[in-house]
Design a protein around this nucleic acid. Structure first.
Lengths: 233, 233
DNA sequence: TCTCAATCCTTACGAATTGTTACAAGGTGG
DNA sequence: CCACCTTGTAACAATTCGTAAGGATTGAGA
């Protein structure tokens, strides 16, 4: 039984040791870092299940780090911060953090919130940036789609967001509302047709027959289903 | 544009209206309840994306309700409570709640936390997406009907809802009222002939002889019976 | 600062799907 | 057989979706 790996990124040594102790006791493996640089270096060799991040770091802006971790790496990110303003919490959560805990915190609550996040884990994308499906290979690090002959076509950031959403939940219905909230979009009052356009462009790059799409299927009045057989690596 | 549905369960009317206003503004549909009983009754016809629950309810123990919602219904549950003790939060989260917000709360943070929960896709029931009956095979993941020669005809979402209802209860009478409530429709005032039309269209796709249907039989004045021999896989 | 290019959102209109209406057909009880 | 109900389905209207075209935004480089 492998234990979930939790990384701790905080510049105060006492907090690091306190958290590490409690989390080890609670059944997690931990890795502690005082600097963002060391933490990011460790990401090359480790794939944490949960990242605890303090926003007040000496060598980076914490929020950009959170944003990159959450959106690009798809990791579960929990902010632990002394900044207690509501606005701080809201922007932290909107940038992709999964939870926001205020210092001083109770260790038991930290454990409970980590467990709550791990109950419905984010799938797949934690393990890699390359996914293969039905003759295609998507390279999210390079923003390119490779077909079965090896030819590559680039895709944009917006297209990649939609594609990742599909590849993380293949063969399941994804409602438009889910997509909107997943992609950080504020559900605008005016009909948001942007999603349709994104999907339309993605379909073109996947060379879907508009009359009979094989990969991205529209369920009228309900959402979309991605039908590929996905393997992440 | 279908908006995510958020239910509000709180015995204080001011809080209900405050939350409902803010959430509507933020792009969600809302349903408010003051009692657990009314809330649970509504679950029969609605499937909320997120349930906000206050623990201090007059007619139920909030924690058991949370537990049932989270485990049995697989819904996203966020507790909003005046009980600020760490132990309350820990037990709430351990019983299956996805988040725990303390009163008094800031509406903006509630919205941000709801969005954070909706970002990661709901765990889906992987149960039964393929059913075979009388030479036909229904693929609910692909929304297609396959006949005995292997030819596939697509069916729509509305048709699929009816078909699934039949395949889940073969050889049993299903009344119109049952269908209406099962398919999310509030029993409309004007007599709803939409169901008849759906069934008519489904019969066409199943190549039923209108004068002598073999699979979907009409029981005059009572409802319908599906007569196929169904095997789910 | 200005220009250019890339990207993305908004708008607009045609197409597909679904609900609604209207009427025909069939059943039931007198 | 005749009123009166329920059901089937064609035709229409409303809603939702696809996508081309134009404009707003962003960032790089001069």
């Amino acid at each position: 039984m492998t234990r979930p790996l939790v990384t701790i990124l905080d510049d105060e040594p006492e907090i690091r040791t306190l958290l590490a102790e409690v989390l080890e006791e609670a059944g997690f493996d931990t890795l502690s870092f005082g600097r963002a640089r060391a933490f990011e270096a460790a990401l090359a060799t480790h794939t944490p299940d949960v990242c605890l991040v303090d926003l007040s770091l000496p060598d980076t802006d914490g929020l950009t780090l959170v944003h990159r971790l959450a959106l690009e790496q798809g990791a579960i990110v929990i902010i632990i911060s002394g900044r207690a303003q509501v606005q701080d919490r809201v922007t932290g959560l909107e940038l992709g953090a999964d939870d926001y805990i205020i210092k001083p915190f109770d260790p038991a609550e930290v454990v409970a919130r980590i467990r709550a996040r791990l109950r419905s884990p984010k799938p797949a994308s934690q393990t890699g940036n390359v996914a293969a499906f039905n003759g295609w290979t998507a390279h999210f690090d390079r923003y390119t789609l490779e077909d079965d002959t090896g030819a590559e076509t680039p895709f944009s950031h917006a297209e990649g967001e939609v594609l990742r959403l599909f590849l993380d939940a293949p063969k399941r219905l994804i409602s438009r509302a889910q997509m909107q909230t997943s992609l950080g979009g504020v559900a605008s009052e005016s009909f948001d047709r942007a999603m349709d356009v994104r999907i339309s462009r993605l379909r073109t790059k996947l060379r879907e027959d508009p009359k009979n799409p094989q990969l991205i299927k529209t369920i009228y009045g309900a959402g979309y289903i991605f039908l590929g057989d996905v393997t992440w690596s």
